[in-house]
């Protein structure tokens, strides 16, 4: 039997047998080389309570070349692209070793959620947010977990339905008062959110940003 197929089959079976890690790997279609993995958001982080899905593609030369992984669930994290789910993690690139498995790689993703590395970001805007105000960043990450990963709401109150009404301001990690302030000048609300998010209009950074500059950006 093909070594790659044997290995992948065994990895899937091992994962099924392991009831303690709460990590699952499922087939997407009939091919064992395109999978979907999922794991729980780690405790004590803004991702707690969420369930995160990962798209897994096994390359031809697996396990000698790294597996390709990408978040399907949207995640607010400096090392994960908030748009595409692309992941910046060394073991998915040069630090890959053939002894790593799908399960151990998913566990590594789980621990990536615990320890963001904002100095080597995948998503620069999220990383800036993290560096400016960790508190505000965590609030936004928690909100994303609630909206996209089925996590609990603030203080554990209720769960927002997936696809339910989303608070665009909270999604962008901004303060409602700030958005209102610029909206009052006659700008479109979504445009204001977009500009403030790009300019990282949060926490201590606000002092560095002149109102005129915001207006200038809004007029572009």
């Amino acid at each position: 039997m093909d070594a790659r197929l044997r290995r992948v089959n065994k990895e899937i079976a091992d994962c099924k047998n392991d009831k303690t890690s709460h990590i699952s790997i499922d087939l997407v279609d009939n091919s064992p080389f395109h999978l979907r993995g999922s794991f729980d958001g780690p405790e004590g982080t803004p991702y707690e309570g969420g369930r995160f899905e990962v798209d897994i593609v096994i390359p031809e030369s697996y396990p000698f070349q790294p597996v390709k992984m990408r978040f399907l669930t949207r995640v607010y994290h400096p090392n994960v692209s908030s748009a595409s789910g692309a992941i910046c993690l060394d073991i998915l690139k040069d630090a890959w070793s053939p002894v790593l498995t799908l399960k151990s790689t998913l566990i590594s993703l789980q621990s990536l959620l615990c320890s963001p590395e904002p100095r080597d970001p995948q998503d620069a805007e999220v990383a800036k947010h993290y560096m400016t105000s960790k508190e505000s960043f965590e609030e936004t990450a928690r909100y994303w977990t609630q909206i996209y990963a089925g996590g609990p709401g603030k203080d554990g109150k209720g769960v927002v339905q997936k696809g339910g009404a989303k608070d665009e301001i909270a999604m962008a990690g901004l303060n409602k008062a700030h958005v209102d302030q610029f909206e009052a000048l006659g700008f479109d609300r979504s445009k204001v959110i977009d500009v403030l998010r790009r300019m990282n209009y949060r926490g201590a950074n606000i002092a560095n940003i002149n109102d005129d500059r915001v207006v200038e950006e809004l007029l572009k």
Binding site: A3, S61, F64, Q65, P98, V99
Partner: peptide
């Protein structure tokens, strides 16, 4: 002392060298 079968070593080395 990390022991692996010769076939895996061979595939690994040639993947490193060729790819």
């Amino acid at each position: 002392g990390h022991l692996y079968c010769t076939a895996c070593w061979s595939t690994y080395v040639s993947s490193k060298v060729r790819t």
